[in-house]
């Protein structure tokens, strides 16, 4: 129990610091790397929550594919790699106020509602097999819908990005 809490603390610290650095750094490639750290930290949290399949998918899809896409996006748009461009707009104080407000109200209501509820410890542990059973039976229609969505996104991205 204690070990879990310690690990949670470490991971959470990494995630929080990386997330903050990601939205404040002036170097866009650094921002992308901080995002990797956040995503990897979340993957570790999923392991902590016994969601092994989600953790694997997180690493495969996000860190593997999405991050590469982002790096390609940065490269292809020739975004200034150094501190050349001002990364944050003049309206950042309002944005900060809005997000603090949002975080405040969310955290307040979370504490108000869940208080010190403990996470269920004796619940069932879902292995990959359970997840796949569920996906291919109860959620087969949304699953098919997602596959169609991905196809549509694929075609849409090609149509948008090709040169003609």
């Amino acid at each position: 129990m204690v070990a879990q809490n310690i690990f949670f603390g470490i991971i959470a610290a990494v995630v929080v610091v990386s997330a903050l650095r990601m939205v404040t750094t002036r170097n866009i490639v650094h921002a992308a790397l901080y995002l990797v750290a956040v995503l990897a930290g979340l993957g570790a949290l999923y392991i902590l929550l016994t969601a092994e399949f989600i953790a694997t998918t997180q690493v495969l899809v996000y860190i593997g594919a999405v991050m590469v896409l982002f790096l390609f996006g940065i490269m292809l748009t020739k975004a200034p790699l150094g501190n050349v461009m001002k990364m944050t707009g003049p309206q950042w104080p309002i944005a900060a106020a809005v997000s603090v407000l949002l975080a405040g109200v969310t955290v307040y209501s979370l504490i108000d509602h869940f208080g010190s509820d403990r996470l269920a410890n004796d619940g069932p542990v879902f292995r990959t097999a359970h997840v796949s059973d569920e996906v291919f039976s109860t959620y087969i229609v949304p699953f098919e819908a997602v596959s169609v969505l991905l196809l549509a996104a694929l075609i849409g991205a090609i149509v948008l990005a090709r040169k003609d």
Partner: peptide, 27 residues
């Protein structure tokens, strides 16, 4: 572990994301 540990972390990340969307100039 508390339920709120995770939920508050999620809320925090969400707010940070909102800040990023609203403040950053790069698409």
């Amino acid at each position: 572990m508390l339920l709120n540990q995770f939920l508050i972390l999620g809320a925090f990340l969400f707010a940070v994301g909102v800040y990023g969307v609203l403040a950053r100039r790069n698409g």
